[in-house]
Design a protein around this nucleic acid. Structure first.
Lengths: 225, 225
DNA sequence: TCAAAAATATGACAATTGTCATTTTGGCAT
DNA sequence: ATGCCAAAATGACAATTGTCATATTTTTGA
């Protein structure tokens, strides 16, 4: 029997959901909570296998809830319920390790199978949202980069140039970079001008994008800038 | 009736899979192919809704197959089948837009529901693999974010603002953006000024970095800029 | 239909940025 | 020390960018 907890601020929704879920036979609802805080309290006493959590809630929302639950009990699976597919929320929740992201409009069958899948360690992502996640993933895993630079040019960047690129990739201004690297502001400008020429880019914005997409912004994290 | 094609080099496997799938009632197997090339030929004549593709195959493997199919028919969903969870393959296939990644050991029920989910535009990722994808996702997204914006502010961005952010995330200048969106250059500047205020950022470079890191630069690919 | 609200535009301004030609500086080999 | 060379700096300049106050236009709703 899979044990679950439902977190939703609307009483009617969570109670009816409870009945529906329990009718599926192999899934039990340990309890319902009207908010993240209440859910955490409830879970101190007894931990479920899977938490069903509404995304939009007054006070702490589902992203925050996911974060709190996963940091306290990493083995508990969280399925996020939403009435719409807001990108911000999707990425936020997945970032903190949600095992699923499904629309409230889904059928009870879909929900039940999402719970079973999450329980087994899998992840189910709803139509529409899946597309976005995957495209995000593709982007991160490279392939459709927005800014292109041929590898040859990228190869002959010296150490200082890389430091500067990294700084630009962190969103620093020339003045800030000059302070950080003990160079004059003019020198930083000259460096950047050179780098842009080498890489065939137009301005620092394109350079920053390229830096981020190639992970240059986070290598040798010696500074935490 | 959902139409599918099975691609697997082992005849026994694909034929028995065909029978199993067709027994599910709402899913039909248009045909089977022993390799990627054969599958592509077959699909020239008639396109399925979903392709089930083995990962490990002599010649072109599942990653290459996914790439070829998605580039020729982007609307066709691809579910990748594998006997083991090799990271390389997982990420490779997802990169090219696979809608699912499931183990050959899955039950026929799981497979059928994966097909239905993929058909509806969703994505199903199997246990074990999901963990890797999500942890990979978290690793990429968490911690190494260079530019931070509190989620509340990010939430109340309207449609136009998002379009502009996306453009900035592509490295476009104000003039270019104004041309693309049919706004005056001044309006674009005002928009950006507003966005920066909302998000608590300083300049377009920081905005671009944030956009890229949050995948805003590649949503709703209506322009391929 | 009219007024309020919103989206879009304008113009002026300072700050930042990118480019370039031209020094100055600081090793460092002979 | 002398000369050489690269790194660093300077100053001038145009272009772009960001901010702000203020129109103008379009949409919306009562």
């Amino acid at each position: 029997m899979i044990q679950t907890v439902i977190v939703d601020d609307q009483e009617m929704f969570r109670e009816s959901l409870k009945i529906l879920i329990q009718s599926s036979g192999d899934i039990n609802v340990l309890g319902c909570a009207s908010g993240v805080t209440e859910a955490l309290q409830m879970m101190e006493a007894e931990q479920p296998d899977v938490v069903l959590m509404d995304m939009r809630m007054p006070g702490k929302d589902g992203v925050e809830g996911t974060r709190l639950i996963k940091s306290r009990w990493p083995e508990i699976k969280v399925i996020v319920l939403t009435t719409f597919d807001d990108d911000e929320y999707v990425f936020g929740a997945l970032k903190y390790g949600a095992s699923g992201y499904i629309l409230k409009g889904s059928s009870i069958g879909e929900l039940a199978s999402a719970i079973r899948i999450a329980y087994g360690g899998g992840a189910l992502i709803n139509p529409g949202i899946a597309t976005k996640v995957i495209s995000q993933f593709s982007a991160m895993a490279k392939g459709n980069e927005v800014i292109h630079v041929d590898e040859a040019s990228a190869a002959d960047l010296n150490d200082n140039e890389r430091k500067i690129i990294k700084a630009v990739g962190h969103g620093m201004s020339n003045r800030e970079i000059s302070g950080k690297l003990y160079l004059s502001e003019g020198t930083v400008r000259n460096y950047i001008s050179n780098i842009l020429l080498k890489l065939g880019l137009r301005d620092r914005t394109q350079l920053a994008i390229w830096a981020v997409q190639n992970g240059m912004a986070m290598q040798d994290s010696d500074w935490n800038g």
